[in-house]
């Protein structure tokens, strides 16, 4: 059974369609990224999924329970919001105790274990308001991990963090993923989260443009080539004259070309560039990164529009 399942979710605010026909599932043990640029509908999706907002259409099930009755998950769900929800005048330990009081569910990790896990054991008595943003995020994560959650949802876990804080949180997420916990990360920081993800759903303008295992999403760009040329304008002009392929990126003398489903071979592309006198230096498969795949998918979605 899926830990988290969204079926045909729609959410509109007046005439603005924030989320359109979104469906995806997250299964136990996955580290699933809900990815997309700002305004793509990630937070709205999470709000609907977590029962904070009523969807216009569609349904969401979290741990087998409808999103409008998440209290029935009995403490098996942990959520960390973008802004840590903490009682700033109370100590780190008192915050954990307060959250435990609301969660009610007993058993699982003790407060000491969870503070040890997030690396805040030494700051147990410090006021939550005196913590740095990174430490505050770790404490918020600790409150979600205390007890025995099966699924933890993190909304923008890296927002506002400096490189050190980012590394700390990512290391923690990796540790949790290694322990088999199911995680959902909503973020636009693709480069940072790529190493920890097993699966992803990519959203653009409220629509899902890809979902599935990360390897499959990256593999969707198999026809992507990177051409290094001496005369970029000439190369771009030659490429635009010939149909079938699509220029999906350019940085200096390096041009990304997507052969896509054109059926064209790399040799044909090389021939065009050579004939055009663009001074082809190198033609190689583009190293697929999540950010590259994301750019390609966004470009495809824009072209589709």
């Amino acid at each position: 059974m899926a830990s988290f399942a969204i079926h045909s979710l729609h959410k509109s605010f007046g005439s603005v369609k924030a989320v359109q026909d979104l469906s995806f599932e997250v299964h136990p043990g996955q580290v699933h990224g809900l990815l997309g640029p700002n305004g793509s509908g990630k937070t709205t999706t999470l709000c609907c999924a977590l029962g904070l907002m009523r969807p216009t259409k569609g349904s969401v099930e979290v741990l087998g329970v409808s999103s409008r009755a998440l209290h029935r998950t009995g403490g098996r769900l942990g959520v960390v919001f973008d802004q840590p929800v903490l009682l700033k005048r109370r100590s780190v330990a008192a915050n954990l105790a307060y959250h435990a009081m609301i969660r009610g569910h007993k058993g699982g990790r003790t407060h000491d274990e969870v503070l040890d896990l997030v690396g805040l054991s030494d700051l147990k008595k410090r006021r939550a308001g005196a913590l740095s943003l990174g430490q505050g995020k770790r404490l918020a994560l600790a409150t979600a991990l205390a007890g025995d959650p099966e699924l933890v949802v993190l909304d923008e876990p890296l927002s506002g963090l400096d490189p050190v804080g980012t590394r700390e949180i990512l290391a923690l997420i990796s540790k949790l993923a290694a322990s088999g916990l199911t995680l959902i990360l909503s973020t636009h920081r693709l480069h940072d989260v790529e190493p920890v993800l097993t699966h992803a759903t990519i959203m653009v303008r409220g629509r899902r443009v890809a979902t599935g295992p990360l390897s499959e999403i990256l593999g969707q760009g198999e026809g992507l080539l990177q051409a290094t040329v001496q005369n970029t304008p000439l190369a771009l002009e030659a490429l635009s004259r010939m149909g079938g392929w699509q220029v999906c990126g350019q940085e200096g003398s390096v041009i990304d070309v997507d052969l896509g489903s054109s059926g064209a071979q790399p040799s044909e592309l090389a021939e065009v560039l050579v004939k055009a006198g663009a001074g082809l230096v190198r033609l190689q498969p583009a190293g697929q990164r999540l950010a590259d795949a994301f750019d390609r998918l966004v470009a495809q979605e824009s072209a589709r529009k």
């Binding site: 977590l50 029962g51 904070l52 009755a69 998440l70 209290h71 998950t73 009995g74 403490g75 769900l77 959520v79 919001f81 802004q83 929800v85 959250h99 609301i102 969660r103 009610g104 569910h105």
Partner: peptide, 17 residues
């Protein structure tokens, strides 16, 4: 405003509660 209501409903508390 502080997010405590969100936190509570995603744990073990219903809205009427």
């Amino acid at each position: 405003e502080s997010g405590l209501l969100r936190m509570a409903v995603t744990r073990s508390v219903s809205r009427p509660a």
